[in-house]
Amino acid sequence: MENRFLSIVSNHKTKSIVEKTAAIIFRGCAIMSIVAVVSITGYMLISGTPALFKEGFIDILFKTTWAPTASDPQYGILLIILTSIVGVILAILIGVPIGLLTAIHLAEMANKHVRKILKSAIELLAGIPSVVYGLLGILIVNPMMYKLELLIYKGDTSHQFTGGANLLSAIIVLAIMILPTLINISETALKSVPDDLRKSSLALGASQIQTIFKVVLPAAKNGIMSAIVLGVGRAIGEAMAILLVAGNAVTFPFPFHSVRFLTTAIVSEMGYASGVHREVLFTIGLVLFVFIMIINLVLTFILKKGDCHD
């Protein structure tokens, strides 16, 4: 071998075939995510639009009567859409302050031990299955809200009592469920703020709290925005946790009304629906999907904007 002249010109055909095959297979794997997104989008459109054309856009999207099994069925999902929007906004309003302040504690103030405990707690919160949140929602949150309901509507004969299974309960469960998302992403955003900014603020005589709220938070604005947007996505897509907690009646989203979300509407009726009814459930899926895609685009926009500023 040592004395024989070794030409560098290729004589390893099989080797290059293996190499090329490997590259092609990896490329195929990478393309899988594109294939998945395209086919999910395709299927959502194909299955969600027929009902819209059969029953009319307005009759489905902007009517409030949901009576899919009546002799003269009506498929208005406006109240369901409104419930999802109102529910998510309120959940965000509760979740964001708590989540953001916890993230501040984690990123800016906590010592090593506190950090460790907090971090583990949040990781566990993120890992708890939705159905478990639902179970605890029924047995802890609902009774509490029922007491509140009884207190507020005492003697009110016109109010239909929900037994605690109402919008408010669902919002509380959702707010808790989005906490890990909000905290983790905000914390990463806060931590990526360069230390120089903090130091120069402190050097000017600002207190730690002033530094956090006047310098660090504004600098981490984009990251916190993405945390909120992802939180919205998480909340609007949650189904199993609020299915039994929210009461599941199609009504206007007031705090003490039993309500039905986009997600719970699909889950609760998909099992037995058929014909147009089933198609309308897919339309609800499409509406949810459109919301999610809008959220994704907003997120990409925020991240792009963040890149430009750096």
């Binding site: 995510s33 998945a36 299927y43 897509g237 189904a239 889950v267 949810l288």
Partner: peptide
């Protein structure tokens, strides 16, 4: 698309 996939709710995956 990976970002999108991680944002799609599980109920949509269920339908698909």
């Amino acid at each position: 698309t990976t970002e999108v996939l991680s944002g799609i709710p599980s109920i949509i995956y269920g339908l698909f």
